[in-house]
Simulated scan of single mutants.
Amino acid sequence: MKPILEVCDLTKRFGGLVAVRNVSFSVRRGEIVGILGPNGAGKTTLFNLLTGFMAPDQGSVEFNGKPLQKQPPYRVVNMGLARTFQLCRPFVGMSVLENVMVACYSPRGARHGTTHGESPENCSRKILGDVGLGHKIDMPAELLSYGDQRRLEIARALATEPELLLLDEPFAGLGSSEIEPLSELIRHLHRERGLTILIIEHKLREFMQLVQSVIAIDFGEVIATGSPEDIVRHPKVVEAYIGKTEADLGIA
């Protein structure tokens, strides 16, 4: 079966700095794939290239066999690839429900609602129930706790009916009591909705326990790919994470 996402020789330069260099990988439909790398490795820049927020200097990205590298973000979303961001960005002055309804009015989200005979409001209520925010639909979005704002980010992405969901550090800023419930939500979305998920995360124990395969990058280049168990023993990954043990990475 053809991969849902194929990335070939993707490169992005900022003046003399090469943030992403000749990155190639593929993601199979139904996988949870992690992108691992230290701070400054080029992970978020890679997400920006995949979702149209930046244009690559060279290379190609194909999603469901269609090129993405020249598409603006709104077209990428309406092709079925959605993302969250490191920093939560709720629509201030709007309720939790209204935040999700905005995404339900996207062309792809609206087509889904029309096909299933559901209004944007009903679609939004179902999604918010699915992510654990059904009891907070009338709350101003900016008053949610940071953990709930993370869930709202995911809900808005889900409202666009993605086939591939990109999560940019979903555990950032969360306490230990919030991380496992969010991990279980991600597993639920993968299991029940059949979503393919590509995730960046710095909380490595949780990351390694969540993903099925890993793409490790350092200084903008892919240095290893494989299972979590193989990746933490790879010499180049160990070198990139000096001082990290297998226990630190959640494998031991």
Rank of each mutant, 00 (worst) to 15 (best):
M1W: 01
P3M: 06
C8E: 13
C8S: 13
L17Q: 03
V20E: 07
N22M: 01
N22Y: 00
S24W: 01
V27P: 03
V27K: 06
G40T: 11
G42Y: 05
T45D: 08
T45P: 02
L46W: 01
F47E: 10
F47L: 13
L49R: 11
L50T: 05
G52H: 09
M54N: 12
P56L: 11
D57M: 02
G59A: 08
G59L: 05
S60H: 07
V61A: 08
K66I: 04
K66N: 12
Q69V: 03
Q69T: 01
P72L: 13
V76H: 08
V76Q: 13
N78H: 09
A82H: 09
Q86Y: 03
L87N: 15
L87C: 05
C88Y: 02
P90A: 15
V92S: 15
G93F: 07
M94D: 12
V96Y: 03
V102L: 15
P107L: 07
A110Q: 10
H112E: 12
T114F: 02
T115L: 10
T115I: 02
G117E: 05
G117D: 05
E118M: 15
C123G: 06
L128N: 12
V131A: 12
G134V: 02
I137F: 01
D138C: 07
M139L: 14
M139C: 09
G147E: 07
Q149V: 04
I154N: 06
R156L: 08
L158F: 07
L164P: 06
L167I: 08
L174A: 14
S177W: 00
E178R: 04
E180S: 02
E180T: 03
E184G: 00
E184A: 05
E184H: 02
L185A: 05
I186H: 02
I186L: 03
E192Y: 09
E192P: 02
I199N: 10
I199K: 10
I200W: 04
K203E: 14
L204T: 10
L204I: 13
R205K: 14
E206D: 11
M208W: 00
Q209V: 00
Q209S: 11
Q209P: 00
L210W: 00
V211A: 07
G220A: 15
G220E: 14
A224D: 05
G226Y: 06
H234Y: 04
P235A: 10
V237Y: 02
I242S: 04
L249K: 02
L249C: 09
I251A: 04
